[in-house]
Simulated assay, not measured.
Amino acid sequence: MKKFFLYSAGFVAAIIAFGLLAPVAGLLVSGLLLAAGLHYYTESTSTFGKVMSLVVALAGLISALSNIPGFIGLVAIGIVFYIYKSRNNEKVEILSKKDDDPFTNFEREWANLNK
């Protein structure tokens, strides 16, 4: 019964994800506008260039925030991904913890070199 519920939830999420592909693409374009505006804002030296790039970034931000179906589509894609990974008995890690200690990284790399 658990597998039936899992597959039916995955099927419904997949239908929602396919139905909302266009808003997700619009959300991607809005994000690209926002990223381009912020990039050119940091690279610009003139005041006019900074103002124009902020206008582009603001347009991308407003467009992205108003695209609620795009966010619903992203959530549906995430659910389909989670169900696919759990079906294959793979562990799904949203945020992985990395060890940033330079000595631990050195020891691991040294052990890999000595193999």
Rank of each mutant, 00 (worst) to 15 (best):
M1D: 11
K2H: 09
K3Y: 11
K3Q: 14
K3M: 11
F5S: 12
S8E: 11
G10I: 03
A14L: 14
I15W: 05
G19W: 04
A22C: 01
A22T: 15
P23M: 04
P23S: 07
V24L: 13
A25N: 08
S30D: 14
G31S: 07
L32S: 11
L34T: 11
G37N: 02
Y40D: 09
S46A: 01
S46L: 00
G49K: 05
A57S: 12
A59V: 15
G60R: 00
G60N: 02
S63C: 06
A64G: 15
P69L: 02
F71N: 01
L74R: 02
V75F: 08
I77W: 10
I77Y: 10
G78K: 01
G78E: 02
I79R: 01
I79F: 13
I79S: 05
V80F: 02
I83E: 03
Y84R: 08
S86E: 14
N89P: 00
E93N: 13
I94E: 05
L95C: 10
L95W: 10
S96R: 15
K97V: 12
K98N: 09
F103M: 07
T104A: 11
F106M: 10
E107K: 14
W110G: 00
W110Q: 13
A111H: 06
N112S: 12
L113P: 00
N114Y: 00
